[in-house]
Structures are given as structure tokens and as C-alpha cells.
């Protein structure tokens, strides 16, 4: 539970763990039921839409201005997004 929360960067309050663990167990139980379906004759399917080869020509298009892209940033500095250091302790 804690590992999953860490991967998703979710902060868990005291008591949350049991609450979500129960929900997650329900989801896993459902997956277990799905696993029982016989899929021997069905090829692995990553896409249900029958579209392939959607390619784009290498032509530049205008995007967002620096002002626009930083508009939602919690903290911006000198044209950059500013974030707490992500370096692990060496």
C-alpha cells in the first residue's frame, strides 16, 4: 500500500491506509475474476480502435509563450519552473 502511494506521490493520512487497502483489495479481486476468462484464442490487444500509422510531417507549429506556459506554475523564476531539489542524498 505504502509503495503504491509512494509511486503515485500520494500523501496518506493516518487511517487512509486501511481505507484504501480495502478498496484496492476489491479492485484486485475483480481483476482476479477477469483473469478467469478464457483468452486462449484472442491475440493480445493494446488498442481497440482499428487505426494504424497516424504519422505527422516534420513541420514546426507555434506553441505557447513562456509567459503562458509558466502561468500555472506554483513558483516560476527567471523563465524556469522552480521545484524543491529532487536529488537523493548521496
Amino acid at each position: 500500500m505504502r509503495h503504491v502511494a509512494l509511486l503515485a506521490r500520494l500523501g496518506l493520512e493516518p487511517g487512509d491506509e486501511e481505507f484504501y487497502a480495502e478498496q484496492l483489495s476489491g479492485i484486485l479481486a475483480h481483476i482476479d475474476r477477469l483473469q478467469q476468462v478464457d483468452t486462449d484464442d484472442i491475440p493480445p490487444t493494446a488498442q481497440v480502435v482499428e487505426i494504424v500509422n497516424q504519422l505527422r510531417e516534420d513541420e514546426p507549429r507555434p506553441g505557447l509563450s513562456q509567459y503562458e506556459v509558466l502561468a500555472n506554475a506554483p513558483v516560476a523564476y527567471d523563465g524556469y519552473f522552480r521545484v524543491p531539489s529532487i536529488q537523493e542524498e548521496a
Binding site: R56, E59, P60, R61, G63, L64, S65, Q66, V69, L70, D78, G79, Y80, F81
Partner: peptide, 18 residues
Amino acid sequence: CGCAVGQLGDPPNSNVCE
């Protein structure tokens, strides 16, 4: 996306889009 591959030295966050 169609954002230009910029040059070293471009202002930060200037070749970006949604």
C-alpha cells in the same frame, strides 16, 4: 508535437506547447 527543436541557449520554456 509540432514544437521546434530549438538551439542551446534558447530562453527556457520557449519551445513548448500544451
